[in-house]
Simulated scan of single mutants.
Amino acid sequence: MTALLSGAGARRFARTGITPTDQVVRVGRYTVRFDRRATTVTAILLGLVVVLVLVSLMVGEYTVGPQALWDVVTGHPQRRLDRFFVVDRRLPRVLVAVGVGAGLAAAGAIFQRLYNNPLASPDVIGFTSGSAVGAVVVFIALGGTLTMGAIGAAVGALATLAIIGVLTVIGGLRGTRLVLVGIALGALAQSATFYILSQAYLPSAAVANAWLIGSLGGRGWGQVAVVGIGLAVVTPLIAVLNRAFHALDLGDTVATTLGVRSGRARMGLMAAATVLVGLSVAAAGPIAFIALAAPHLARGLTRTPGAGVFAAACTGALLLGVSDLVAEHAFPAPVPVGVITVSIGGVFLIWLLVREGLRHRV
Rank of each mutant, 00 (worst) to 15 (best):
F34N: 07
T193Q: 10
M270P: 04
G285N: 12
L188R: 00
V124F: 06
R29T: 14
V27K: 08
L241T: 02
G222E: 10
L161K: 05
G143V: 05
Q190G: 13
T16H: 14
S215K: 03
A184Y: 04
R303V: 10
V138W: 02
V138A: 04
N209A: 11
L202F: 10
V100F: 09
L146R: 02
N242V: 11
V27E: 10
V64Y: 03
F348I: 08
T39S: 14
V362W: 11
G130R: 04
I344S: 11
V100K: 01
I340T: 09
I151N: 06
V96K: 04
D22H: 14
R36Y: 05
H360D: 06
A189D: 06
T19N: 12
V98H: 00
V179Y: 07
F348M: 04
T193K: 07
T341W: 09
R37M: 11
V322Q: 01
L178S: 01
R299C: 08
A8C: 00
V354C: 02
G346D: 10
L185T: 05
V24H: 11
G186A: 04
A43L: 14
G149P: 00
L353D: 11
L52E: 09
G300H: 13
S262F: 03
V226A: 07
L95F: 04
V27I: 15
R261I: 01
A154G: 13
A288Q: 11
A162S: 14
R355M: 07
V354R: 15
V86K: 03
R36W: 08
T256F: 10
R359C: 00
A208M: 04
R264N: 00
H296F: 09
D123L: 07
A132Q: 04
I290S: 07
A225V: 14
T74M: 13
A298I: 11
V326W: 03
E356Y: 08
